[in-house]
């Protein structure tokens, strides 16, 4: 793993914590993470998905909504919520509600009809020596919701043709 590689930990049954460094000043990372036209450029989704909505009002009380359609044109994933804390260019706290739809491969009634998962996301950016250090804490309201978030990409990978899963398994064996 290189020095800027992403670390993911699960410090409790309710949390996922991501840390990573970026070779850029903090104000640029802040812009890239808060301006919709920039977010659209890096928030990668599975092959065949396309953005259906990307709206962000990054102020306390401001709402945001990200939506993607699957290859069949139907809604695959919706994420939305409200900003609770906004301290440019250092800190954002927002809640996230998330539902998957029929456009997501390998997703059936268990996710299409389910209550949205909810989590509280805290983004912290610090800068040192021209590099930006990111820490993202996702706090879920149940272990079930946390595990669902961890497994969702895997289920999609399995459904999409198994390559992604095989690559991950190969990586873990090394």
């Amino acid at each position: 793993m290189n020095s800027t590689g992403l670390k993911v930990t699960t410090p409790s049954n309710l949390e996922i914590v991501m840390t990573r460094a970026f070779d850029a000043p903090r104000r640029l990372v802040w812009d890239a993470m808060t301006k919709p036209e920039l977010v659209r450029q890096w928030m990668f989704t599975p092959p065949g998905w396309s953005w259906a909505a990307c709206e962000m009002d990054v102020r306390v009380g401001g709402k945001y909504r990200w939506e993607w359609n699957g290859p069949n044109g139907e809604r695959a994933l919706s994420i939305w919520g409200e900003h609770r804390e906004v301290v440019p260019p250092a800190r954002i706290v927002h809640n996230e509600l998330m539902t998957m739809g029929p456009g997501a491969g390998g997703c059936g009634s268990d996710c299409a009809d389910a209550e949205p998962w909810e989590l509280l996301a805290t983004l912290e950016l610090t800068e040192s020596g021209g590099k930006t250090h990111l820490r993202m804490t996702l706090l879920f309201n149940s272990k079930e919701a946390r595990d669902a978030a961890l497994t969702s990409g895997m289920e999609r990978g399995v459904a999409a043709g198994y390559d992604a899963l095989d690559a991950i398994l190969a990586g873990m064996k090394r």
Binding site: T4, G5, L6, K7, V8, T9, T10, I16, M18, R20, F22, D23, A24, L28, V29, D31, A32, M33, L38, Q41, W42, M43, F44, D147, A149, L150, T151, G153, M154, G157, A164, L165, A167, I168, L169, G171, M172
Partner: peptide, 27 residues
């Protein structure tokens, strides 16, 4: 959980690599 965490990491690392590229353009 270790396996789930690893696949979750792989997905986000891809996104963050795209963010690296965008930051280079912005710089």
């Amino acid at each position: 959980v270790a396996l789930w965490t690893e696949q979750f990491r792989a997905l986000w690392e891809k996104r963050f690599q795209a963010l690296d590229a965008l930051l280079e353009v912005m710089k």
